[in-house]
């Protein structure tokens, strides 16, 4: 997949069983776009988190739904979109307090935080037609300093 090619789109059943497929497709797409293997793995984990959010929160784990995965290579970034027709996320956390979550014996609440830590730009968009879309972008590596995806 080169930078001047058309976007790649894949429709995937919105199930946790498909997470490994989405992970592997994303990892390979990122490598094809010039990201090193560790950066590609991070991008794949972030996209997996978005997919998990759609499965568990947008569709509440109910079968019969799909996610449209779209890879959009740009000159400076790799943009990945996950389009769905489920519920929009509410109260996206600005950060997490791991100590508090642990004291409360919580097992969730880390996914959006992890997406943001691994990618350079993460947002959820909603259209008036009820289409939701997670948008994740990772800056392309510079020759001397590959994109870290870390927050400043």
């Amino acid at each position: 997949m080169g930078r001047d090619r058309a976007p790649l789109e894949i429709d995937v059943p919105a199930t946790c069983e498909c997470l490994s497929l989405v992970h592997e497709a994303t990892r390979r797409a990122a490598i094809a776009e010039g990201f090193d293997p560790s950066a590609a793995e991070e991008i794949a984990v972030a996209v997996g988190e978005a997919m998990t959010n759609v499965v568990e929160h947008a569709y509440h784990g109910k079968p019969g739904h799909a996610v449209r995965l779209r890879f959009l290579p740009g000159p400076d970034t790799l943009r990945i979109e996950l389009e769905h027709r489920g519920a929009a996320p509410t109260n996206l956390p600005a950060g997490v307090d791991l100590g508090r979550l642990a004291r409360e014996r919580r097992r969730g609440g880390l996914g959006v935080h992890l997406m943001r830590r691994l990618m350079d730009h993460v947002v959820h968009e909603e259209s008036a037609a009820g289409v939701g879309c997670w948008v994740l972008e990772r800056n392309r590596p510079r020759s001397s300093s590959p994109g870290s995806g870390s927050e400043s």
Partner: peptide, 16 residues
Amino acid sequence: YVASAGFGAIMGLIEE
């Protein structure tokens, strides 16, 4: 690799 679900499993049990 480990996604947030794996770290969440540790987080949910470490205080126990």
